[in-house]
Design a binder for these strands. Sequence first.
DNA 1: CACCCTACCTAACGTTCGTTAGGTAGGCAA
DNA 2: TTGCCTACCTAACGAACGTTAGGTAGGGTG
Lengths: 200, 200
Amino acid sequence: MAQSASNTVLVESGRDRILDEAAALFLRHGYEGASLRQLAETVGMKAGSLYYHFASKDDLLTEILRRGIDVMQTAFDEAETASADVRPVARVEAHVRAHLSALFENGPYTAAHVMTFRTAPETVREVVVPLRDAYEARWTEMLRLLQADGAIDPTVDVNVIRLVLFGAMNASVEWFDTDRGNLDRFAAAITAQFWNGVGA
Amino acid sequence: MAQSASNTVLVESGRDRILDEAAALFLRHGYEGASLRQLAETVGMKAGSLYYHFASKDDLLTEILRRGIDVMQTAFDEAETASADVRPVARVEAHVRAHLSALFENGPYTAAHVMTFRTAPETVREVVVPLRDAYEARWTEMLRLLQADGAIDPTVDVNVIRLVLFGAMNASVEWFDTDRGNLDRFAAAITAQFWNGVGA
DNA sequence: CACCCTACCTAACGTTCGTTAGGTAGGCAA
DNA sequence: TTGCCTACCTAACGAACGTTAGGTAGGGTG
């Protein structure tokens, strides 16, 4: 009942705790809108002490953006192995569910990533862009294969439909409420809209 | 050939000029990430002089967010009268085109709105939320009528598909390049994806 | 016991921020 | 010519920012 030993603690401390709270703060107020003193107070220390764990505020953001991608990649991995031989639409739904899981169920890193990346300092973006590209390439490749197999409309631009789908999923961070909505149902709804459309 | 008289000047000045550049700056760097000194230098004046035109930075943002909605509302009006009696999917496409027009063809206000609203100060949001709600209600009502007429799948949640569509359209600010892509074609593509889906 | 390393703290540095008070050049009106 | 109004400017204010240098309590190790 009480926490046992090593893996996940009820209230973590140190570096991971800082990253968690920083990601949540950046998500809510934006990168420039959140101050280190605000962050320090949230985690219960003084601003200067943060520099024992991180070289700079930019460095902190870089780490958060990196973790955001790691979470997405891991989710993609799991969806890939879990949906190895299901029909195309179910495969897409598995990956949609995985991406939503990254956004809502694995800490604030992915949500903070998709919301703060655009206005991040150039030096930070430079580091993260290749990682982003790699993740997006996996999606594009998956959709490209489905199109080659005849499962996706051959007239659509795979890159465009991916960006549209990403926009829809990522924007849900702004309005989807995990307390009120069910993520499985939401993934099913967004996949149905993506695959079949809404026309009667 | 040279500009004539009143309506639109090649290079505007004064208050409108400030708003234009401020919206562009807020869009690029976020509200907190853009400074008034940066803005002042862009429009060719000193930071303090901005206060002749605006009471505060928050006030400036409020005006920009308000204009962003005005542009959307106007675009919606035009789409509504232009697509009064066309088939449902064409009606939706007209409104998608109108929203994209607001985002890309009528100054940076709407784009700045959708990108900075989320992290705007609470006092600013309070003022703008009712205006936002009014615009979103028009969309919901339109889709609701289409569903009542049997043109939209009766099993979908109109509010969810609207939010998903909004997410897709608004996120395109991040990646769609007006110099390379055609907005008519993009509106057609996004509408087709919305209406018919991408499944073969 | 002596030592050291971890994880903080205090206190300040210089910079930048939004903002304000008071001044002024130029145009238009009486 | 005098006076006012518009649209700026200069100069500074206090606050907040990211960041750094130096100090220290406490636990683990020899």
